[in-house]
Nucleic acid binder design. Structure first.
Lengths: 239, 239
DNA sequence: TCATGTGAACCAATTCACAGCA
DNA sequence: TGCTGTGAATTGGTTCACATGA
């Protein structure tokens, strides 16, 4: 089930996930007038190892100069093109609650070639409102919006209870890339790319690590430490 | 840089990242009155393979019954305890713009043992306002808020330009877990756990895959396809 | 007779270490 | 000289397949 053909001659998943980060760092360097950058410097700024960075960039072709480094402007161009920045990826936001509004007003994704072109909501009280310069349309018009505006990506900012239905609706309309903020595991047909961002999951992960730290520092009650012991199995935790 | 001692005898990072998902699915099953569940069913609902699920749970100890499956209530308890759900992890949100407000009003993380207890902002026009039942306090009081309220996790919802300073401030106040929504790479000292959620990165990843699909379908202009060829080198890509 | 729990095999990704080239 | 680009080694994680035990 795992992407075999990607491995064959494509770009590894892990690399793709880092490209937007590189692009952002490179853009920042360019704006500050930096002309060339070494893999060491760029890696530090991006929070990865220099070997990883060089290998990542090598997947996109050789764009550096040995003994010198990478020309920032050239690399920005190239990475940007690989990420599809030359085209405009149209996005629809489904669910115009407080999160949906925040996302609609978020200006940060224009640099990555995506643009919000439509807003949908199922609540008649919200439909018709103007948010971030766009009129909120009823969910019933999903297929029409997706088809006529050439939308390629759907962002779901609906409550957990409505997420699967909203997801099914955009998929039925032909969407093949979905980014969900709802705290549920969505089921999508094969061929649809689903990414999920979930605040409670992120906080849960942080809590797990904090808990480790607390256990190592002896801050937990005895009963809980016993439970923790089952988890760590060995003594020497971080301290 | 990477967590070596965790790897030594702890729970693998990849497993930790899935535990909140399992917990959510299990909680849902419990609420629907399901008493026992097999690894096959649970894995399907969580969107992972059954072998992965069994191995993940085995890291927490054996809590299943051979030939039968897992008792939902018992497993919810156990996974919850591992994630630190028995305690309350206090959270401060820094930056009360539209995203910060949405996060403050988000009810979905209570089930994972975290609770927002303070809101901070540097803008005098926002300080003093009440959001989600809490008064917005000035950033200058960061150290005081973190120390006196026992805050363990900071959520940064500030603009990119202010993120590093905000991060430095909470770290200086003693915070060791940071969840950032700002589109910049933050630098933190060793020992501080940083997670970053970035909308534009997520959309960039989706755009990359969409671009692949478009290239495979011959939808791109000739010049762009040439660039794409450099990247993919082979034809068929599934995911 | 089941489905769990787990060694072994496999695969992807990171890291090392150095060859190759401006 | 110095830094990129890349085979080789290593690490971490997933998947397989079956022994284990209710």
């Amino acid at each position: 089930m795992r992407a075999q053909r990607d491995g064959a001659r494509g770009v590894p998943d892990a690399t793709v996930a880092r490209l937007p980060v590189y692009l952002r760092v490179l853009t920042g360097l360019g704006e500050r007038g930096v002309a060339t950058v070494s893999s060491e410097e760029l890696a530090l700024a991006a929070g990865v190892g220099s070997a990883t960075l060089r290998k990542d960039l090598s997947h996109l072709g050789s764009y550096g100069v040995r003994g010198v480094g990478y020309e920032v402007a050239r690399l920005v161009q190239h990475v940007g093109r690989c990420l599809g920045l030359a085209e405009e990826w149209r996005v629809v936001i489904v669910g115009i609650g407080s999160l949906g509004r925040a996302l609609a007003n978020y200006s940060g994704f224009a640099p990555l070639g995506t643009r919000v072109v439509a807003l949908l909501d199922s609540d008649p009280a919200v439909v018709g409102e103007r948010v971030a310069g766009l009129e909120v349309l009823p969910s019933a018009r999903t297929a029409e919006v997706v088809g006529e505006l050439g939308v390629r990506i759907a962002v779901l900012a609906v409550p957990a209870s409505a997420a699967q239905a909203a997801c099914d609706a955009v998929v039925a309309a032909g969407i093949t890339s979905v980014l969900s903020f709802a705290p549920v595991e969505l089921q999508v047909p094969a061929g649809v790319e689903l990414r999920s961002v979930d605040l409670s999951t992120e906080l849960g992960i942080l809590a797990f690590r904090e808990r480790r730290r607390a256990a190592a520092a002896g801050e937990l009650s005895p009963g809980l430490v016993a439970a923790e012991e089952r988890v760590t199995t060995s003594a020497g935790a971080t301290r």
